[in-house]
Design a protein around this nucleic acid. Structure first.
Lengths: 180, 180
DNA sequence: GAATGCATGTAAATCGTTACATGATTAG
DNA sequence: CTAATCATGTAACGATTTACATGCATTC
């Protein structure tokens, strides 16, 4: 089982879904912390079904294929819970923004300041987007420890992450400007 | 040219290096924000040489191959500077920790708290490591806008990132404990 | 009548990691 | 004399992304 299998399982466990719905939620809101292009979703659902962690119900509605609704099994829910508390192995960091900043000594200071300001604006936009999600999730008033409450926690982390990057870009740009 | 090519170029531009040295620095300190396994380094250096962005000097010292020292060319330095101020395209987010937290509603609260505490300790260790790097880079007192100064900025970002994650894990664990 | 959204899947291409293969020098 | 470090490269494997392929229903 790959990490993306658990990402898919986590969505199906929250509510029964078709592959298409999983792919949609994988873009937003899950995509904020785990993006998966649709190509991998269907093979993943098959692996989960083979393991007995999800069941498939074929709904012969309209459309060429007839849709398939996936649901978690008790074993799947247990596997998800166990996986969630295992230590996370963080894969190699790949942060292009930080990499670029580390190379900005080779650029003209003015160009660097412009680039950093643009990045700061981008992250401010991100922050606003997250803040909206946080606001909506707060209104739900989900009890501590519920799925909704954990969603709120991840959204809060996203907001703070975006804020941190925004502030960092601003500060580096400012320090560079002072000298300029 | 791939992003990793610029990562390699950025290292060679700071000081002439062999492929081995590039690989070593790619683990630490650059690995904190851009990890690259050694398998990709040599092909990358070749691409950079083909583009005329680095030159190779073969040093027939001891050893079976004789080492090759790579240096930037003026064109390479220019390319690096231009790339560094282009907007960063952030590749799909892949944050296993956040993904796990989003699934912790399926785990026993006690197990979740234990897991979060362990993560908090891990990130505290990371924070301390970054803080050490920050301290060393500060002592260098590199002028604003220099390569060393930008290194300090990236280390500061690393430290704040680690601190943010530590605090987040702690807070979620605490909120979960209060309810427990 | 055209575009968009729902819906499922496969295939090819790309990209990155791990393992393989070799070998000299230096420190313990 | 043995382990670690310096040093270069290739090959196989695995994972991921993008593109291909199909087609109904609804809205503009």
């Amino acid at each position: 089982m790959r990490t993306l299998d658990f990402a898919v399982l986590g969505l199906v466990a929250r509510e029964p879904s078709t592959g298409y719905q999983v792919a949609a939620r994988m873009r937003r809101p899950v995509g904020y912390y785990w993006a998966e292009s649709h190509g991998g979703i269907y093979p993943s659902l098959r692996r989960l079904a083979d393991a007995g962690w999800v069941t498939v119900e074929r709904v012969e509605g309209p459309g060429p294929h007839g849709k398939k609704v996936y649901s978690v099994t008790p074993a799947g829910r247990r596997a998800l819970g166990e996986w969630s508390v295992e230590p996370a192995v963080d894969p190699p960091e790949r942060d292009e923004l930080v990499l670029k900043v580390s190379a900005m000594w080779a650029a003209r200071p003015r160009a660097a300041i412009v680039a950093l300001d643009a990045e700061a604006r981008r992250w401010e936009e991100q922050r606003v987007e997250y803040a909206g999600i946080v606001g909506r999730l707060r209104q739900a008033r989900d009890p501590v420890g519920s799925a909704g409450w954990f969603s709120l926690q991840t959204a809060l982390r996203g907001r703070d992450y975006a804020r941190g990057r925004r502030d960092w870009c601003r500060r580096v740009a400012r320090d560079l400007s002072v000298d300029d």
